[in-house]
Design a protein around this nucleic acid. Structure first.
Lengths: 140, 140
DNA sequence: TATTGTTATACTCTATAACTATA
DNA sequence: TATAGTTATAGAGTATAACAATA
Protein backbone atom coordinates (compact mmCIF):
# COMPACT_ATOMS: atom_id res chain seq x y z
CA UNK A 1 0.00 0.00 0.00
CA UNK A 2 1.38 3.37 -1.04
CA UNK A 3 2.10 6.04 1.53
CA UNK A 4 -0.65 8.66 1.59
CA UNK A 5 0.83 12.10 1.69
CA UNK A 6 -2.49 13.84 1.00
CA UNK A 7 -5.93 13.27 2.43
CA UNK A 8 -8.69 12.41 0.02
CA UNK A 9 -10.66 15.23 -1.56
CA UNK A 10 -13.68 14.89 0.73
CA UNK A 11 -11.47 15.26 3.79
CA UNK A 12 -9.71 18.28 2.34
CA UNK A 13 -13.04 19.84 1.42
CA UNK A 14 -14.37 19.19 4.92
CA UNK A 15 -11.31 20.72 6.57
CA UNK A 16 -11.72 23.82 4.46
CA UNK A 17 -15.38 24.04 5.33
CA UNK A 18 -14.48 23.81 9.02
CA UNK A 19 -11.92 26.56 8.53
CA UNK A 20 -14.46 28.79 6.78
CA UNK A 21 -17.08 28.13 9.44
CA UNK A 22 -14.74 28.83 12.32
CA UNK A 23 -13.74 32.10 10.69
CA UNK A 24 -17.39 33.17 10.68
CA UNK A 25 -17.94 32.46 14.36
CA UNK A 26 -17.37 36.02 15.49
CA UNK A 27 -19.78 37.39 12.94
CA UNK A 28 -22.46 35.02 14.24
CA UNK A 29 -21.84 35.74 17.91
CA UNK A 30 -21.75 39.49 17.35
CA UNK A 31 -24.68 39.43 14.93
CA UNK A 32 -27.08 37.75 17.30
CA UNK A 33 -25.51 39.52 20.29
CA UNK A 34 -26.49 42.84 18.72
CA UNK A 35 -30.06 41.56 18.85
CA UNK A 36 -29.69 40.76 22.54
CA UNK A 37 -29.50 37.02 21.97
CA UNK A 38 -27.06 34.36 23.04
CA UNK A 39 -26.10 31.81 20.38
CA UNK A 40 -28.42 29.16 21.82
CA UNK A 41 -31.32 31.60 22.12
CA UNK A 42 -30.81 32.52 18.46
CA UNK A 43 -30.82 28.85 17.45
CA UNK A 44 -33.98 28.29 19.47
CA UNK A 45 -35.71 31.11 17.56
CA UNK A 46 -34.45 29.68 14.28
CA UNK A 47 -36.21 26.39 14.97
CA UNK A 48 -39.51 27.95 16.02
CA UNK A 49 -40.74 28.77 12.53
CA UNK A 50 -43.59 26.45 13.42
CA UNK A 51 -44.81 25.77 16.98
CA UNK A 52 -42.88 22.93 18.58
CA UNK A 53 -43.00 21.02 21.83
CA UNK A 54 -40.24 21.55 24.39
CA UNK A 55 -38.98 18.02 23.74
CA UNK A 56 -38.82 18.63 19.99
CA UNK A 57 -36.75 21.73 20.54
CA UNK A 58 -34.44 19.79 22.86
CA UNK A 59 -33.98 17.25 20.05
CA UNK A 60 -32.99 19.78 17.41
CA UNK A 61 -30.82 21.81 19.80
CA UNK A 62 -29.09 18.62 20.95
CA UNK A 63 -29.46 19.37 24.60
CA UNK A 64 -31.36 18.02 27.56
CA UNK A 65 -34.99 19.06 27.99
CA UNK A 66 -34.07 20.69 31.29
CA UNK A 67 -31.88 23.18 29.42
CA UNK A 68 -34.72 24.13 27.12
CA UNK A 69 -36.73 25.16 30.17
CA UNK A 70 -34.14 27.80 30.98
CA UNK A 71 -33.55 28.95 27.40
CA UNK A 72 -37.28 29.37 26.81
CA UNK A 73 -37.77 31.01 30.23
CA UNK A 74 -35.44 33.80 29.11
CA UNK A 75 -37.08 34.22 25.71
CA UNK A 76 -40.52 34.16 27.28
CA UNK A 77 -39.49 36.79 29.83
CA UNK A 78 -38.71 39.05 26.87
CA UNK A 79 -42.10 38.40 25.29
CA UNK A 80 -40.68 36.52 22.32
CA UNK A 81 -42.19 33.10 22.95
CA UNK A 82 -45.36 31.74 24.58
CA UNK A 83 -45.91 28.31 26.11
CA UNK A 84 -49.33 26.87 25.25
CA UNK A 85 -50.60 23.51 26.53
CA UNK A 86 -51.17 21.18 23.58
CA UNK A 87 -54.91 20.45 23.24
CA UNK A 88 -54.48 16.73 22.56
CA UNK A 89 -51.98 16.08 25.39
CA UNK A 90 -51.84 18.58 28.18
CA UNK A 91 -48.44 17.39 29.35
CA UNK A 92 -46.97 18.85 26.13
CA UNK A 93 -46.27 22.55 25.87
CA UNK A 94 -46.23 24.09 22.43
CA UNK A 95 -43.79 26.94 21.98
CA UNK A 96 -45.23 29.70 19.81
CA UNK A 97 -43.46 32.85 18.72
CA UNK A 98 -45.20 36.12 19.52
CA UNK A 99 -45.30 38.93 16.95
CA UNK A 100 -42.13 40.30 18.50
CA UNK A 101 -40.61 36.82 18.36
CA UNK A 102 -41.46 36.46 14.67
CA UNK A 103 -39.93 39.84 13.94
CA UNK A 104 -36.74 39.04 15.83
CA UNK A 105 -36.53 35.63 14.21
CA UNK A 106 -36.63 37.32 10.80
CA UNK A 107 -33.82 39.65 11.81
CA UNK A 108 -31.74 36.72 13.07
CA UNK A 109 -32.18 34.92 9.77
CA UNK A 110 -31.31 38.03 7.76
CA UNK A 111 -28.04 38.34 9.63
CA UNK A 112 -27.09 34.69 9.66
CA UNK A 113 -27.85 34.09 6.01
CA UNK A 114 -25.61 36.80 4.62
CA UNK A 115 -22.80 34.83 2.99
CA UNK A 116 -19.27 35.53 4.18
CA UNK A 117 -17.03 37.68 1.96
CA UNK A 118 -15.07 34.58 1.01
CA UNK A 119 -18.10 33.15 -0.78
CA UNK A 120 -19.37 36.45 -2.15
CA UNK A 121 -15.97 36.96 -3.79
CA UNK A 122 -16.30 33.79 -5.87
CA UNK A 123 -17.40 34.30 -9.47
CA UNK A 124 -21.11 33.84 -10.17
CA UNK A 125 -20.28 30.58 -11.95
CA UNK A 126 -18.29 29.30 -8.98
CA UNK A 127 -21.05 30.33 -6.60
CA UNK A 128 -23.56 28.30 -8.60
CA UNK A 129 -21.21 25.32 -8.71
CA UNK A 130 -20.76 25.47 -4.95
CA UNK A 131 -24.50 25.86 -4.38
CA UNK A 132 -25.26 22.89 -6.62
CA UNK A 133 -22.58 20.65 -5.12
CA UNK A 134 -23.94 21.30 -1.64
CA UNK A 135 -27.47 20.62 -2.85
CA UNK A 136 -26.27 17.26 -4.18
CA UNK A 137 -24.54 16.47 -0.91
CA UNK A 138 -27.63 17.34 1.12
CA UNK A 139 -29.94 15.37 -1.15
CA UNK A 140 -31.98 18.43 -2.09
CA UNK B 1 -35.85 46.68 -9.94
CA UNK B 2 -37.27 43.21 -10.44
CA UNK B 3 -38.67 41.28 -7.51
CA UNK B 4 -36.17 38.69 -6.27
CA UNK B 5 -37.87 35.41 -5.66
CA UNK B 6 -34.60 33.52 -5.13
CA UNK B 7 -31.53 34.44 -3.19
CA UNK B 8 -28.29 34.71 -5.09
CA UNK B 9 -26.14 31.64 -5.44
CA UNK B 10 -23.68 32.63 -2.70
CA UNK B 11 -26.51 33.00 -0.21
CA UNK B 12 -28.01 29.65 -1.19
CA UNK B 13 -24.60 28.01 -0.94
CA UNK B 14 -24.04 29.55 2.49
CA UNK B 15 -27.42 28.43 3.78
CA UNK B 16 -26.64 24.90 2.67
CA UNK B 17 -23.28 25.03 4.34
CA UNK B 18 -24.93 26.17 7.56
CA UNK B 19 -27.39 23.31 7.27
CA UNK B 20 -24.61 20.77 6.73
CA UNK B 21 -22.60 22.17 9.63
CA UNK B 22 -25.52 22.17 12.02
CA UNK B 23 -26.24 18.56 11.10
CA UNK B 24 -22.69 17.64 12.16
CA UNK B 25 -22.91 19.28 15.55
CA UNK B 26 -23.83 16.12 17.42
CA UNK B 27 -20.99 14.20 15.87
CA UNK B 28 -18.57 16.89 17.05
CA UNK B 29 -19.97 17.12 20.58
CA UNK B 30 -20.05 13.36 21.00
CA UNK B 31 -16.68 12.88 19.32
CA UNK B 32 -14.79 15.17 21.64
CA UNK B 33 -17.01 14.20 24.58
CA UNK B 34 -15.82 10.61 24.15
CA UNK B 35 -12.31 11.97 24.71
CA UNK B 36 -13.43 13.68 27.91
CA UNK B 37 -13.37 17.15 26.37
CA UNK B 38 -15.90 19.95 26.17
CA UNK B 39 -16.19 21.69 22.80
CA UNK B 40 -14.14 24.66 23.95
CA UNK B 41 -11.45 22.44 25.47
CA UNK B 42 -11.23 20.61 22.15
CA UNK B 43 -10.89 23.89 20.26
CA UNK B 44 -8.19 25.03 22.67
CA UNK B 45 -6.21 21.87 21.97
CA UNK B 46 -6.72 22.37 18.23
CA UNK B 47 -5.04 25.77 18.40
CA UNK B 48 -2.09 24.60 20.48
CA UNK B 49 -0.18 22.95 17.66
CA UNK B 50 2.51 25.49 18.50
CA UNK B 51 2.99 27.09 21.93
CA UNK B 52 0.86 30.20 22.31
CA UNK B 53 0.36 32.88 24.92
CA UNK B 54 -2.89 32.97 26.89
CA UNK B 55 -3.89 36.17 25.12
CA UNK B 56 -3.30 34.63 21.69
CA UNK B 57 -5.52 31.71 22.58
CA UNK B 58 -8.19 34.13 23.79
CA UNK B 59 -8.00 35.85 20.41
CA UNK B 60 -8.51 32.71 18.35
CA UNK B 61 -11.17 31.30 20.68
CA UNK B 62 -13.01 34.64 20.58
CA UNK B 63 -13.41 34.86 24.32
CA UNK B 64 -12.13 36.96 27.16
CA UNK B 65 -8.70 36.16 28.58
CA UNK B 66 -10.32 35.36 31.92
CA UNK B 67 -12.15 32.44 30.31
CA UNK B 68 -8.93 31.01 28.98
CA UNK B 69 -7.62 30.84 32.53
CA UNK B 70 -10.40 28.43 33.44
CA UNK B 71 -10.27 26.41 30.23
CA UNK B 72 -6.51 25.95 30.55
CA UNK B 73 -6.78 25.25 34.31
CA UNK B 74 -8.92 22.22 33.49
CA UNK B 75 -6.63 20.98 30.72
CA UNK B 76 -3.59 21.53 32.91
CA UNK B 77 -5.21 19.61 35.79
CA UNK B 78 -5.43 16.66 33.40
CA UNK B 79 -1.78 16.96 32.47
CA UNK B 80 -2.49 17.97 28.87
CA UNK B 81 -1.02 21.48 28.91
CA UNK B 82 1.77 23.29 30.75
CA UNK B 83 2.12 27.00 31.41
CA UNK B 84 5.68 28.26 30.93
CA UNK B 85 6.77 31.84 31.54
CA UNK B 86 7.99 33.38 28.27
CA UNK B 87 11.74 34.09 28.56
CA UNK B 88 11.55 37.51 26.92
CA UNK B 89 8.57 38.78 28.92
CA UNK B 90 7.79 37.05 32.16
CA UNK B 91 4.25 38.42 32.24
CA UNK B 92 3.43 36.19 29.26
CA UNK B 93 2.68 32.51 29.79
CA UNK B 94 3.29 30.15 26.92
CA UNK B 95 0.92 27.22 26.71
CA UNK B 96 2.69 24.03 25.69
CA UNK B 97 1.10 20.66 25.11
CA UNK B 98 2.52 17.75 27.08
CA UNK B 99 3.07 14.39 25.41
CA UNK B 100 -0.41 13.40 26.57
CA UNK B 101 -1.76 16.66 25.23
CA UNK B 102 -0.16 16.09 21.84
CA UNK B 103 -1.59 12.60 21.70
CA UNK B 104 -5.08 13.77 22.62
CA UNK B 105 -4.85 16.65 20.16
CA UNK B 106 -4.10 14.15 17.41
CA UNK B 107 -7.12 12.08 18.38
CA UNK B 108 -9.33 15.19 18.37
CA UNK B 109 -8.14 16.07 14.89
CA UNK B 110 -8.67 12.54 13.62
CA UNK B 111 -12.26 12.65 14.76
CA UNK B 112 -13.08 16.16 13.64
CA UNK B 113 -11.54 15.82 10.22
CA UNK B 114 -13.51 12.78 9.12
CA UNK B 115 -15.84 14.20 6.48
CA UNK B 116 -19.55 13.72 7.01
CA UNK B 117 -21.33 11.02 5.00
CA UNK B 118 -22.95 13.71 2.87
CA UNK B 119 -19.56 14.72 1.48
CA UNK B 120 -18.11 11.23 1.32
CA UNK B 121 -21.09 10.21 -0.83
CA UNK B 122 -20.23 12.74 -3.53
CA UNK B 123 -18.37 11.37 -6.55
CA UNK B 124 -14.59 11.75 -6.51
CA UNK B 125 -14.94 14.39 -9.21
CA UNK B 126 -17.49 16.35 -7.18
CA UNK B 127 -15.33 16.04 -4.08
CA UNK B 128 -12.40 17.57 -5.95
CA UNK B 129 -14.60 20.35 -7.32
CA UNK B 130 -15.84 21.15 -3.84
CA UNK B 131 -12.33 21.04 -2.39
CA UNK B 132 -11.02 23.35 -5.12
CA UNK B 133 -13.90 25.81 -4.84
CA UNK B 134 -13.33 26.12 -1.12
CA UNK B 135 -9.61 26.57 -1.67
CA UNK B 136 -10.39 29.44 -4.04
CA UNK B 137 -12.77 30.99 -1.53
CA UNK B 138 -10.21 30.76 1.27
CA UNK B 139 -7.43 32.14 -0.89
CA UNK B 140 -5.31 29.00 -0.53
C1' DT C 1 -46.66 2.75 34.85
C1' DA C 2 -44.77 5.79 31.41
C1' DT C 3 -44.03 10.41 29.58
C1' DT C 4 -43.61 15.71 29.49
C1' DG C 5 -41.78 19.31 31.47
C1' DT C 6 -39.86 21.49 35.74
C1' DT C 7 -36.77 21.97 39.69
C1' DA C 8 -32.44 21.19 42.22
C1' DT C 9 -27.71 20.66 41.80
C1' DA C 10 -23.21 20.94 40.00
C1' DC C 11 -19.97 22.02 36.40
C1' DT C 12 -18.43 24.68 32.26
C1' DC C 13 -18.39 28.83 29.48
C1' DT C 14 -19.12 33.67 29.32
C1' DA C 15 -18.10 38.85 30.27
C1' DT C 16 -16.84 42.66 33.49
C1' DA C 17 -14.20 44.63 36.96
C1' DA C 18 -10.62 44.60 40.32
C1' DC C 19 -6.25 42.85 41.28
C1' DT C 20 -0.93 41.02 40.75
C1' DA C 21 3.27 40.88 38.64
C1' DT C 22 5.81 42.36 35.38
C1' DA C 23 7.27 45.82 31.82
C1' DT D 1 1.66 53.96 33.34
C1' DA D 2 0.55 50.09 30.57
C1' DT D 3 0.06 45.12 29.72
C1' DA D 4 -0.50 39.81 30.71
C1' DG D 5 -2.75 36.98 33.33
C1' DT D 6 -5.62 35.84 37.53
C1' DT D 7 -9.46 36.20 40.73
C1' DA D 8 -14.17 37.43 42.04
C1' DT D 9 -18.63 37.67 40.63
C1' DA D 10 -22.74 36.95 38.07
C1' DG D 11 -25.36 35.06 34.27
C1' DA D 12 -26.06 31.47 30.70
C1' DG D 13 -25.56 26.69 28.89
C1' DT D 14 -24.88 21.84 30.13
C1' DA D 15 -26.20 17.05 32.19
C1' DT D 16 -28.18 14.12 35.90
C1' DA D 17 -31.55 13.01 39.16
C1' DA D 18 -35.80 13.74 41.55
C1' DC D 19 -40.33 15.52 41.08
C1' DA D 20 -45.39 17.02 39.51
C1' DA D 21 -48.91 16.65 36.24
C1' DT D 22 -50.91 14.06 32.79
C1' DA D 23 -51.55 10.02 29.98
Amino acid sequence: MATRTRADAATEAWKRMLELMWSQRGRFIDGVGDLGLSPMQAHALRFLEQPRAMSELADVLLCDASNVTGIIDRLEARGLVERRPAPEDRRVKLLCLTKAGEALRARVRERIEVPPPELAALSPHEQRELRDLLARALGH
